[in-house]
Amino acid sequence: MDNGDQKVEKEFLVTNRQGIHARVAAQIADLAQRFKSDVWITKGNRRVSAKSILDLLTLACGYGSKVIVSAEGCDAKAAVDALGSLFKKRFGES
């Protein structure tokens, strides 16, 4: 592994009532795109890029879905933390 490269993953729960719909997916993709690392979201056995809004939508994460946010690269930890805080504050929804 290159110097400074990290690999981080953490599990989160989709807790807003409408699940990951377009506006939420936009928040995730927009945030993920700001990091240099590759960022993924995994649900069940499917893994998609967190930087693609359409990929996120195809993951079909409803209310209560469990997902794993993972990242690999120089700012992987920061990316997972940032995305994690989005999940925790329910994307600003109820």
Partner: peptide, 17 residues
């Protein structure tokens, strides 16, 4: 709410798919 939907639309436009 609709403002953030418009942001989503802009990201969709640039999505690789």
């Amino acid at each position: 709410q609709y403002a953030s939907l418009l942001d989503a639309y802009r990201l969709m436009l640039r999505d690789r798919l």
